[in-house]
Simulated assay, not measured.
Amino acid sequence: MLLFSILSAIVTAGLLGAALLWTRRQPDDERQTAREDYARFVAEMDRRVANGVIEASLAHEEKLEAARALLKADAAGEGARRSVSPLLGLIGAFVIAGGALGLYLVTGKPELPDQPYQQRLDAWMAQAETQPETMASKPLSEVLKRKAAENTEDPQYWMFLGRLQVMSGDYYDGAKSFRVAVTKAPDNAEAWSNMGEALTLMNEGKSGPDARTAFEEALKRDPNDLSGQYYMGKVLIAEGRFEAARAMLGGLREQLPVGDPRRQAVETELAALEQAQTVDAQTRGQIAGMVAGLEARLADNQENPDGWARLLRSYRVLGDVASEARVLADIERVYQKRPEIKASIIEKANRPVGSQ
């Protein structure tokens, strides 16, 4: 551990040197660094979207969060610099560095040999050669990644690597591996459904457009693909297509033997479907009551642009295409000579529910 102790001393000296530089830094250094970090983050998000490894909506949310953090840093930066004394900062650096070194000497294990990452990786690789069944998914996936150059054209390699990465919680890397697998073997339904699952897990359990497409591709190639049926059933529930979801999940349940733990997961989704359908029916009933009231008020007073917008949006939510077309024709008739009002009504109707 002598090397580690020397490195610790060097790091400590570097921290003290950084503290001294901090007392002489320019006021805008931190802001400039934060802006550069933000620019690099945005560029990385754009690259991932372009490469198809992350959904555009998710990337947009991440960039918004980064922008908010940058604005907060800019707003707080000046006050923080005024409130912290350079001398206190220097004293704090000495205390932190000294405390960290003392904690290491007291509670650490300086008598043990150091274990750098490469050494641990070498040990994992040796273990993988003799006892791979004893390894956890994370170290085994790290070992397997070192074999990528030897297996670039082998879809089964990328499938196995992707499974290990998903088991390790590395959903982003797992999705990348499965994407390579479907490129090498586009007719492999399991590769498609596995990629959709990784994308769903990466998106906190929500299947976005890319995941949905992956499940559709899986079921095109194998209508009995278990993962494809399960996740597509959940997608159909989220879309309000309850009968299609019931048929999908019901068919999947029949494929699974009694006692199979996966069957319980399907039963849970079928129960969630019934609850979602009940809530949807209640919501539609409420909307229908509101629609009837709107229709009556508009019959008495057609000069109500907000009312027309709400009525049009309500029929769209209900999926009543015929009534939507009828309302559009009424709007055209009432505002034929005032196209700017008609355009405003259409624009309001197109806004997401709750955005007003």
Rank of each mutant, 00 (worst) to 15 (best):
L273H: 00
D173H: 08
E36R: 10
A136H: 06
A214M: 07
P116G: 09
E30Q: 11
Q115N: 11
S137N: 15
M195N: 05
N51A: 10
V258Q: 14
M248H: 08
Q277F: 00
S323K: 15
R263A: 13
M248V: 06
E324W: 09
P339I: 09
D280I: 01
V53T: 15
V143D: 05
I91L: 13
Q229A: 01
W158A: 05
G79L: 12
K138C: 02
F178K: 07
V95C: 07
G251R: 10
P86Q: 08
E44P: 00
G205Q: 06
D222G: 05
R316F: 01
Q282T: 08
E269W: 00
S83P: 01
G89Q: 08
S168V: 07
N151C: 05
A148R: 12
V327K: 00
F4M: 11
T283I: 08
L21M: 08
E150G: 08
S323M: 14
G319E: 07
I346Q: 10
K176W: 01
A322V: 12
Q277I: 01
D170W: 00
K176Y: 02
P352D: 10
E142H: 04
Y117H: 06
Q26K: 15
R35L: 09
P86F: 04
A281H: 06
A244E: 15
L161R: 02
S137E: 13
F4C: 06
Q127E: 15
K147Y: 15
T107M: 11
I331L: 09
G92R: 02
A19P: 00
A292F: 04
G196P: 08
E324M: 12
P27I: 02
G307V: 08
E324K: 09
R25V: 06
Q282K: 12
L144S: 08
V266G: 00
A309C: 09
D300V: 07
V327T: 08
A75M: 13
L20S: 06
M135A: 01
R212G: 12
G162Q: 11
Q255P: 07
G102Q: 07
A185V: 05
R24P: 04
S227Q: 11
L201A: 12
D28C: 03
V95K: 00
A69T: 10
A329S: 14
E129P: 03
G205Y: 02
Q286E: 14
L249V: 05
D28A: 14
K337M: 11
P339K: 11
R31C: 01
A309H: 01
T283P: 00
R120H: 00
G251V: 11
R253F: 09
A9C: 09
R163Y: 12
P27R: 14
A349S: 15
F215C: 00
R24F: 09
E332S: 13
G79Y: 10
D320M: 03
D222K: 10
A128K: 07
E44H: 07
A136Q: 14
L201E: 11
A245L: 04
L252P: 09
G17Q: 06
A39W: 03
E243V: 01
R81A: 13
Y171F: 14
S193T: 08
L199D: 03
G169Q: 08
D154H: 05
A76E: 15
I237M: 05
L58C: 04
L87I: 13
P132G: 04
T23F: 01
A13I: 15
G102D: 04
L144N: 07
H60Q: 13
